[in-house]
Structures are given as structure tokens and as C-alpha cells.
Design a binder for these strands. Structure first.
Length: 715
RNA sequence: GCACGCUUAGCUCAGUUGGUAGAGCAACUCGUUUACACCGAGUAGGUCGCAGGUUCGAGCCCUGCAGCGUGCACCA
């Protein structure tokens, strides 16, 4: 039986079979756990996007969550780790569109149904693949409860929430400025944008008696006023009057309005107001009852209102308009290197977003934000790293309503219907919210939900709100562990929608991990060639080694550096442990008659000290884990095993076993076995595979290590 | 502009409630004695960003400054 210890530890031989053993044991399912466990401990897995393979960030969340789950499972909690997969609406659509592009195809040349079907097939295939990868990383989640974000019951919950929000006046259909992607032909929420710095010319244009500065001369055809600050003495006499000038495609008359929005210090203190293509101008227009004239269409081309410029793309039109204006002497000066920011698609920096006014569905945020704020203030939701609490509050202060409608195919269709009203009734159309409208003549809204609207409901939806036993037993969940980059996208929305829908917070603790970067702290990216593929390194060094490398030195909320060297060093550690086990087993009559963790050990004084030292370590590590000081706990067990157990205890055991009295020898053997088995327990959540494998070689261990009782805490 | 972080050994980072600085990797010297060379013994390497302050005592608390990073933000 000990033959396998004669050669170095080989993770590739043991990991696959061990995972199978765990999965077949049924212990991933809280209902099957041995003993009397009633106190629930629950983690809802952030569902990975089913549109590609797992990256090292996924490996990190799997490692952290699996560690917590295994720790709590051994502590005797009724542990549920509920896995899921995300259809990931817009992001998957981008991935799939790219794939189509490579094949010389386009979504815009396909029927909606056809596109949807293909994307679904693609997603389901990836889903299966991803599930396999999660298993490879050792995830001890309950596969029998796995959910997919497009499961019918999930969609039903999402629809119910939408209806409830609508009935409560928290969802409304508004015609408002939104961020429009001309490339992907959809609007995006404010979070799905990024402001990037650009250098563009700032044109000083002559508007009759005025000169005003703009970076977008091509929108001039949509001007419906010019504005000045009410306190600006330079222009006071003009307020309320009209100016008239050459507008390039004919004479133009514009009213001069006064609005606080205008900063007299900037440019000339005069602003052109283009309500249809600038959110600020839209606000101004609302206050002054100005019309909005659409001069840029959904494809980013100028409309027929723009005379000879109609049909030109924005940048092309900008150059043409600027040139023509200059020729007519209507450009006073140009600041060629003006630095400003433009909003781009967060997934594609080349996709500059156009502000457009469109009918969309919005969620009123203020009441939901209040719910969330209170829950965090009074501690019902606790952020493990304090900094995120501050960031959270800061964000709540500047919330705008959330656009949840997308003009994409891949997603959950919005359950809304429209029907033209008869002339007598006045209003142009009526609306129905729900899946089946009564009567004839209804047309369904073709928009789909922002994925984060449904994801925001994930904890209670995945647990089967409101009636399932799982919801009753496992909600609120214990901890939400996810990346800090989706704090606003996801964590906030879950808190808001969870509270709104169920009246309770979705989770008590929030643990946010940082980004995994390369050894030089560079972002990993395919183009830089510095990507560490978690499955490759797991194959090379063992999953346990990868897990340790991801845990040690990784503080919550802070980005971490990961290099192959680091992973390799923990492979060495695994081998160290392997040899420690070999030594102990060889020198304790292969552990015969020495049941691990046996009570009432008769130890000599010296060994009692060693045992006490171990007990103190176990207590310490337990506290660290309970308070999410995972990096410290990992370092401590590592340090103990290598520098204390192996370097000191084992070394001195050699002479004791050779020359000690029979009592000393017996005591030492018990100690070795006791510390080994205890260490395996402490280390199991960190390095589940090798610890389980060694555990299985200790005579007398009938049950799996994954459900062995956690070492006792001595207070 | 507002907010939040970070600045500790060559590199990447720990340092839990304030008590004379730690890890991994890298470097150098020595060592193949049966748990392990995926090892061991040892060496070198830090005025803990700067300036003040509180304290018997500060990497840790306070103030200011500098540099870097991140998030948020409608200045044309």
C-alpha cells in the first residue's frame, strides 16, 4: 500500500479519480451529509459565462469558494454550494457575432430565431465544457441543483419581478437619452460604458453674433437653441431673443436661452443645444421646452435633415462640415489637440457610443438604493473589506435610472406588449405587462433584458423563490464571493432586488477578490501572451498547487500577482507533505492500531507540548478562516508543516524512535499520527486532493476526509 | 473634478488588537547522511515613500506632502 509513496507525488494520477469519488459519495449535496447537521451554510456560485473556457479568475473564485465550503462542511454545517451557468446576454452575443464574422456571416443577415437557435447551441456546448473544467478545479458544488440563467423557472421569477416593479411604479417606459452602440445596434446601461480620453479638434464656430466651441460640428443640424449662463453679463441682452445665421444648409434661427448648466468660464460661455444627441442638452431642452431633432440615425449616419451631408458617417460628416464651415469663414479658430472624454462600449473601445433618445424600459433606482443603503448601514450586509463599503455608498449617491432594455436577440425577452389605441381614446397605444395579453392585436416588445437585471435576482431565483424548501432553508445565503469588478454590475443589484423581492438581504457577507495579474502586475491578455491558463497549470503542477498559489499572499479586494514559479513552489510543498506522510506511515507500523485523532492520547510531556502547539495552530487557523483571513491561514499551515512538523518534529523523531524508551516510542508514534491526520484536516480546504489521497492511505480511516470533523478549537 | 486604495528585501507581496521587520521566487556558499535534491545547512539583502505629531514605544494611529493605481463623474 505504501508503494505509491516511494515515488514523488503525481497529481495527475489521483485528481480525476478522487473527484469522481467525492461526487459519487453524494456529499456535495447538503441533504446527504452524514451526522446531524442542521445549521445551513450557503454559497451561490457566480455563474460563469457559458461562452468560452475558464480563465484564472474563475480558478480563483472556485478556489476561494470551495475552500469556504469545505471548511464549513467539515465543521458540520449543512453546506450548499449551488452552481450555475450564465447565458450572459450581450457578452455572449458579442462572442458569437465575432465567430460569425470570422465565417463571413452576420447577425443582421439572419432571422432572429435562427440567430437565437445557433447561439443557444453554442452556449449549451460551452456550458458542458465549463462544467467539466469546474470539476477539474475540485469544485465541491452540488451539481444536482445546478441552474442555468435561462431555465424556465428562473425566467418566470424574472418576469414576476418585472411585473411587480411595474405595478409598484418602479419600472417605467421612458423616452430618454441612452447610450447607443451603432456597431451592435443596441442601447447599453450607464455601467456598460467606459469613458476614454481622446484628442479631438475643438472648433470655435460663428453662430451669428456669437462664437461657440464644440467638438461635434456635425450635430449642428440638430441644434434647437443656444444657451448662456443667466448671470453672464456679456450675453444678458440676448436672452430670449433669436439669432439668425448661415447654417450651411440654409439660414437658421435659434432662440437664445439662459440656463445654469452653462459654465461661463468654458470656451466662450455659449453652448449650442442639441437635445437629440447630448444628454445634457436633453435636460436643458426639457427645462425650456425645446424640440429634439434627430440628425444621427441608428447606424451613426446623418439623417435626411442634414441636406447634402445626409448618409455620411459621423466622423466623415464632421470633417466635411468643418471644412465647409471654414471655407465660408465660419470657423473662428480650432484648438486641434483638445483633450476630452468620450463614452465607449465597455467591451469594445472602438465602438464609440452615440447618445440617442429612444423609448426604453427603466428601473427607478432611488427607492431600491435606499433599501440597499439601509441594509449595509445597519450591517445586515457586511463587506469583508471596508473599502468597498465606502465605494458602495459613494456610488449610491450618483445613481441614475437603469436602462434594462437591450435591442439584442440573445437574452430573456421582455414580457411587454403594445396595441394601437383607437382614435377616440386619445393615447397612441396601450401596453400590457405579462406573458399573455388578453384579446387581439397585440405586438410583443422585441427587446430583451439587460442580463444584469436577471442576474441581480440570481440568489433567490436559483434557490426557487418563493416556495421551495431550498429557499426557506438557504436564504439569505452566507457569503457572496465574487470579483470586485462586478460590484456595481452585480453585487449592488442583487442587494437591491433581493431586498425588494424577498424583504431580506441575499447574503450576509460580501467577499470581493481582486484581479489575477501576471508576475509584473500586468493585466493578463492574449495579445500580451502572458495568460496563465488554469487548466494547463493544474495539469502541470497539480490543482492543489494552483489553489495554494492563488490563496497565499492574496488579500481580499486587492489584485494579485501570479507567476508559474509561485505555482511550482507549492507543487514542491505538495511533495513535501507526501514525504512527510510516507515517513509517518513507515514509522508508525503503517499507522496500525493508531486511529487518527483518537481520544485520550497517552503522550509523554515533550509530545504533549507538540500536540498543544498543534492544537493552538488549529485554533488560530480556524479563527482566521472564520474571519476570512484566508491568506494568513494558508501561510500558517504551510509554514507549520514545513518548518515545524517536517523540520523539527520529524527530525527529532528519528532518534527517539531509534533510541527512546518503549513509552517514548509509543507516545511519539501516536503524536506523529495525530499531527499528520490533524494537519490533513486543516489543509484539506486548501489542498483537497493530496490530503484526501493521503488520508485514504491511513489505516482506519473509513469515511472521506471531506466530511471528517474539523479539529477542535481550544479557547 | 469627486471618491477609494497603494508606496515594506532585487521581484511579487504578507505583517490580524501599536511592543526591537517576514514569506515565496530570484542570488551566493556548502552538502548527494535512507521521508523528501520537488531536499537540507548557511549567507547576503530593508533609514518600512517624505516631513511632522501622538505614545514609554509606530510599518501599524493622526496631520500634511509626493508618486502610482482604481472607481465614479454631463463640462460643450
Amino acid at each position: 500500500m505504501l508503494d505509491k509513496f516511494k515515488k514523488p507525488y503525481d497529481p495527475t494520477e489521483v485528481e480525476g479519480p478522487l473527484y469522481k469519488k467525492w461526487e459519487e459519495s453524494g456529499y456535495f449535496n447538503p441533504d446527504n451529509l452524514p451526522g446531524e447537521c442542521t445549521e445551513p451554510y450557503t454559497i451561490i456560485m457566480p455563474p460563469p459565462n457559458a461562452n468560452g473556457s475558464l480563465h484564472v479568475g474563475h480558478a480563483l473564485f472556485v478556489t476561494l469558494q470551495d475552500l469556504l465550503i469545505r471548511f464549513k462542511r467539515m465543521q458540520g454545517y449543512k453546506t450548499l454550494w449551488l452552481p450555475g451557468m450564465d447565458h450572459a446576454g450581450f457578452e455572449t452575443q458579442i462572442v458569437y457575432e465575432k465567430k460569425l464574422e470570422k465565417e463571413g456571416r452576420s447577425r443582421f443577415k439572419m432571422e432572429r430565431e435562427e440567430f437565437y437557435k445557433e447561439t443557444l447551441a453554442f452556449t449549451l456546448e460551452n456550458k458542458k465544457f465549463t462544467e467539466g473544467q469546474l470539476r477539474q478545479l475540485g469544485a465541491s458544488c452540488d451539481w444536482s441543483r445546478e441552474k442555468f440563467t435561462l431555465d424556465p423557472d428562473i425566467i418566470k421569477t424574472v418576469y414576476d419581478t418585472f411585473k411587480k416593479l411595474y405595478d409598484d411604479g418602479l419600472v417605467y417606459r421612458g423616452v430618454r437619452p441612452v447610450n447607443w452602440s451603432t456597431k451592435y445596434q443596441t442601447s447599453l446601461s450607464d455601467l456598460e460604458t467606459r469613458a476614454v480620453e481622446r484628442k479631438d479638434p475643438l472648433y470655435y464656430l460663428k453662430y451669428g453674433p456669437f462664437v461657440l466651441a464644440t467638438v461635434r460640428p456635425e450635430t449642428k443640424f440638430g441644434d434647437t437653441a443656444v444657451a448662456v449662463n443667466p448671470n453672464d453679463s456679456r450675453y444678458k441682452e440676448w436672452v430670449g431673443k433669436e439669432i439668425e445665421f448661415d447654417g450651411l444648409i440654409g439660414r437658421v434661427k435659434l432662440k437664445v436661452i439662459a440656463d445654469e448648466y452653462v459654465d461661463p468660464e468654458f470656451g466662450t460661455g455659449v453652448v449650442k443645444i442639441t437635445p437629440a444627441h447630448d444628454p445634457n442638452d436633453f435636460e436643458v431642452a426639457q427645462r425650456h421646452n425645446l424640440p429634439a431633432v434627430e440628425v444621427i440615425d441608428r447606424y451613426g449616419r446623418l439623417t435626411e435633415k442634414c441636406g447634402k451631408y445626409a448618409g455620411m458617417k459621423v466622423m466623415e460628416a464632421r470633417a466635411a462640415v468643418a471644412k465647409d464651415l471654414a471655407e465660408k469663414g465660419l470657423v473662428e479658430k480650432v484648438d486641434a489637440e483638445y483633450t476630452h472624454t468620450v463614452l465607449v462600449n465597455y467591451k469594445n473601445e472602438n465602438d464609440v457610443l452615440e447618445p440617442r433618445i429612444l423609448p426604453q424600459w427603466f428601473v427607478k433606482m432611488a427607492p431600491l438604493a435606499d433599501l440597499a443603503r439601509t441594509a449595509v448601514e445597519d450591517g445586515r450586509v457586511h463587506f469583508v473589506s471596508e473599502q468597498y463599503r465606502k465605494i458602495f455608498f459613494h456610488w449610491l449617491e450618483q445613481l441614475r435610472d437603469w436602462n434594462i432594455s437591450r435591442q439584442i436577440v440573445w437574452g430573456i425577452p421582455i414580457p411587454a406588449w403594445f396595441r394601437p389605441k383607437t382614435a377616440q381614446e386619445g393615447a397612441s397605444e396601450e401596453m400590457y405587462i405579462g406573458e399573455k395579453p388578453p384579446g387581439e392585436g397585440w405586438v410583443r416588445d422585441t427587446d430583451t433584458f439587460d442580463t444584469w437585471f436577471s442576474s441581480g435576482q440570481w440568489p433567490f431565483a436559483a434557490l426557487g423563490y418563493p416556495d421551495s424548501p431550498d429557499f426557506k432553508n438557504h436564504y439569505p445565503t452566507s457569503v457572496m464571493e465574487t470579483g470586485h469588478d462586478i460590484l456595481f454590475f452585480w453585487v449592488m443589484r442583487m442587494i437591491m432586488l433581493g431586498l425588494y423581492r424577498t424583504g431580506e438581504v441575499p447574503f450576509r457577507d460580501v467577499y470581493l477578490h481582486g484581479l489575477v495579474r501576471d508576475a509584473q502586475k500586468q493585466k493578463m491578455s492574449k495579445s500580451k501572451g502572458n495568460v496563465i491558463n488554469p487548466l494547463d497549470v493544474a495539469e502541470k503542477y497539480g490543482t492543489d498547487a494552483l489553489r495554494m498559489a492563488l490563496l497565499i499572499g492574496n488579500t481580499p479586494g486587492t489584485d494579485m500577482a501570479l507567476a508559474e514559479d509561485k505555482i511550482r513552489s507549492y507543487k514542491h510543498f505538495a511533495n513535501k507533505l507526501w514525504n512527510v506522510a510516507r515517513f509517518v506511515l513507515e514509522n508508525t507500523d503503517q499507522g496500525n492500531a493508531l486511529s487518527p485523532g483518537s481520544q485520550g492520547l497517552a503522550l509523554v510531556a515533550k509530545d504533549q507540548e507538540c500536540q498543544a502547539q498543534f492544537d493552538a495552530l488549529a485554533t488560530d487557523i480556524t479563527h482566521d478562516l472564520e474571519e476570512y483571513r484566508i491568506y494568513l491561514a494558508a501561510e500558517k499551515i504551510y509554514h507549520y508543516l514545513w518548518d515545524e512538523f517536517a523540520a523539527n518534529i520529524l527530525e527529532e523523531s528519528k532518534s527517539i524512535l531509534k533510541t527512546g524508551t518503549p513509552e517514548e516510542v509509543a507516545s511519539r508514534k501516536r503524536l506523529l499520527m495525530s499531527v499528520l491526520s490533524g494537519s490533513l484536516k486543516l489543509l484539506h480546504p486548501f489542498m483537497p486532493f493530496i490530503t484526501e489521497e493521503i488520508w485514504g492511505s491511513i489505516p482506519g480511516t473509513k469515511e472521506l476526509l471531506m466530511v471528517a470533523p474539523w479539529p477542535q478549537v481550544r479557547e
